[in-house]
Computed example of a mutant assay.
Amino acid sequence: MKAEILDMLSQSEEPVSGERLSTALDVSRVAVWKHIRQLQESGYDIQASPKGYRLYSAPDTPFPWAFGPLAERLHYYPEVTSTMDKAMELAQSGCPAFTVVVAERQSKGRGRLSRTWQSSAGGLYFTLVLRPDISPEKSPLLNLAAAVDLSTAIENLYGIHCGLKWPNDLLVDERKLAGILSVMSAESDRVEFVNIGIGVNVHNDTRKVQPPAVSISRLTKLRVSRTDILKAFWERFERRLCQQQLDRVIDEWRQKTITLGRWVKVQTIHDTIEGRAVDLEETGALILETDDGQRKTVVYGDCFHQGHARGQNN
């Protein structure tokens, strides 16, 4: 109901009468007024006059009703330990594919290798539940696809070009703009679900964050909306997976990456490997060429750029 009211108000440059809203929505004018009041209390600047209601501004808050047809699959929380925790509960209880959990804050946001993701106010923090028909060894492709689609969504909305660092980061001038983390539940030959957790620096203050980070609002003079970012990514990513378009994601990722050709250090759970990043395997694993000319494949780890590829000028 709130989504429909907002849709009618946003499409009109003139006040919309309570009678017109109640007729279109097939509810009483009292019911319309109650929904309007709840929207006002949630931060929407809706002014009432003898001619009706008019929407002047909306808060940059990813409330479910701001997502139209997607609303029934979105779970919004002011604060959680982590959106991944909530999404795990929903996935294990059988929620539909492409369910999203989004929160204003995370008290224990997750990063890679058990690190903490700093989740200050103004960022976009969400986890998407997937139920892909793929083999477990191809699940890393989902991370790459999410990075490609998120960077494309941000570029289309705000003209910001993001470089992709293997396996899960979006960088602008070597400063982190977004991070991606996935958790999989699978049997030997079948994926039950994969949860993709994403954190995007949107309005939050990143000036004291280490390693260096940057927010979208600092990179553009355009009006920035967390709702628009989530919606654009969600629709693009869901369309990709529904159309079975993972086969081309390696080539798409190569076009956007700033990792290949660089000397890198990759920290895994048990080891640290250094070498030049030369390519990806078809499963998304990173291929490194070490000092002695050997090639090693890394399936999972945290990658640190160590400057330009050896043999290049700094």
Rank of each mutant, 00 (worst) to 15 (best):
A153V: 10
W263H: 12
V183I: 03
S151I: 07
L124V: 11
L177G: 01
R218D: 13
W65M: 01
D251Q: 13
G301Y: 02
Q106F: 09
A186F: 02
Q40R: 13
G122N: 02
L222N: 07
K86R: 08
T290S: 08
V249F: 00
L124F: 06
D173R: 09
A97H: 08
A178K: 02
L124E: 05
G293P: 01
Y44K: 03
Q245S: 15
A213W: 08
L246I: 13
Q40L: 02
V100C: 06
E252L: 10
I46E: 04
D228I: 06
L130P: 10
L219I: 03
A186C: 08
A24M: 11
A178V: 09
L230W: 08
T206D: 03
L21H: 09
E187I: 04
K256H: 12
Q38D: 12
C95I: 03
D149H: 07
P78V: 11
Q244R: 11
A146P: 04
R131Q: 13
P62R: 05
G159I: 04
E192S: 13
N195I: 15
R236D: 13
L286Y: 09
P69M: 02
D271C: 08
E274M: 10
Q294S: 12
A145E: 00
Q255V: 10
S57R: 15
A145R: 03
G122E: 06
S49P: 03
G18N: 05
D7G: 05
I198G: 01
E72L: 05
Q243I: 00
G122W: 08
Q294N: 08
I216H: 00
Q38N: 14
S188Q: 15
R239E: 15
H161E: 12
V80L: 15
M88W: 11
V100F: 01
E72P: 05
L230K: 04
E155C: 10
S119K: 09
L141T: 12
E235Q: 15
Q118W: 12
V101Y: 00
Q92G: 08
R175P: 01
T290C: 08
A153H: 05
S17L: 07
I198Y: 00
Q47T: 13
V200L: 06
N313D: 00
V80S: 04
K51P: 01
G199V: 10
I269M: 06
H305T: 07
V200Y: 02
D173C: 05
L113I: 14
G109L: 10
D302N: 14
P78C: 02
P64L: 07
F304Q: 14
N168F: 07
N168T: 06
N314S: 14
R276C: 11
F304T: 15
P140G: 11
T116P: 06
T297V: 15
R29V: 14
L286N: 01
R218H: 03
A71Q: 14
S93H: 12
P211F: 11
I134K: 01
C162L: 02
D251W: 10
C303A: 05
A66T: 12
I5V: 06
Q38H: 11
S93L: 15
L164E: 03
K208P: 00
V209G: 01
S139V: 13
V129Y: 10
G68H: 09
R240W: 12
